[in-house]
């Protein structure tokens, strides 16, 4: 498949929902935001609380205007595994450091740069898992999530090493295992494009 076509196909689909979230959620969110504000400010006079309320109202308005990001997935209940999450975060930090070094090496010798576009399918058990995977890919320098459509990911990668580590699928497997005991195959149909026209 040709990259231009692929990008066209991805850029013409847009299925975000623009429905506003229910009021109960907006109010709950406002309450939490106000709590965080009070915690951070630590001052309880009229001016500081007033500023906080104004800021919280502004954020609530912005959020309703944006519409629901639809993080709930009706099909599967979200089960968090705190231990695995902690282990994953530790692993992610380590990966971030390793790949920062990789990007630094590319910066100091740009001839190492060999950008690639990678598409792959990674069926994740939950929408939140998708978000975590997309964010993790972006956070480890060298790979950058360009688009997610269904279970299909489009990733820009800076160098050979980043490309290989992404296609190995270690991260995809770990994210899937955060949310499900027996995840489906974490990476499928991985394809690497290294120039505008490849078969």
């Amino acid at each position: 498949m040709n990259v231009t076509l692929l990008m066209h196909e991805i850029s013409t689909t847009d299925n975000r929902s623009h429905a506003s979230p229910p009021w109960s959620r907006t109010l709950f969110q406002g309450g939490i935001l106000l709590l965080v504000w009070l915690l951070f400010s630590g001052k309880f006079d009229a001016f500081h609380i007033g500023t906080g309320v104004a800021a919280v109202l502004f954020v609530m308005w912005l959020d309703r205007r944006l519409g629901s990001a639809c993080l709930d997935d009706a099909r599967v209940p979200l089960k968090l595994r705190p231990l695995r999450l902690a282990a994953y975060l530790g692993w992610l930090m380590w990966q971030m450091i390793l790949s920062s070094i990789e990007v630094a090496r590319v910066i100091f010798s740009p001839e190492r740069a060999n950008p690639a576009l990678i598409t792959f399918r990674s069926p994740q058990p939950h929408v939140v898992a998708k978000v975590v995977l997309g964010n993790s890919i972006t956070l480890t320098p060298g790979t950058l999530t360009l688009d997610i459509e269904g279970d299909r990911y489009l990733v820009h990668s800076l160098s050979e090493a980043s490309t290989n580590s992404l296609v190995e699928g270690t991260m995809q497997r770990k994210v899937a295992r955060l949310f499900s005991e027996d995840p489906a195959e974490p990476v499928r149909e991985a394809t690497i494009f290294r120039s505008r026209f490849t078969l």
Partner: peptide, 19 residues
């Protein structure tokens, strides 16, 4: 997107996925 100039002829498009 900028591509590495000398890689355009390689046509490397290996499907490296496990499935």
């Amino acid at each position: 997107i900028w591509w590495k100039p000398d890689s355009s002829h390689l046509q490397e498009d290996a499907a490296k996925g496990k499935g």
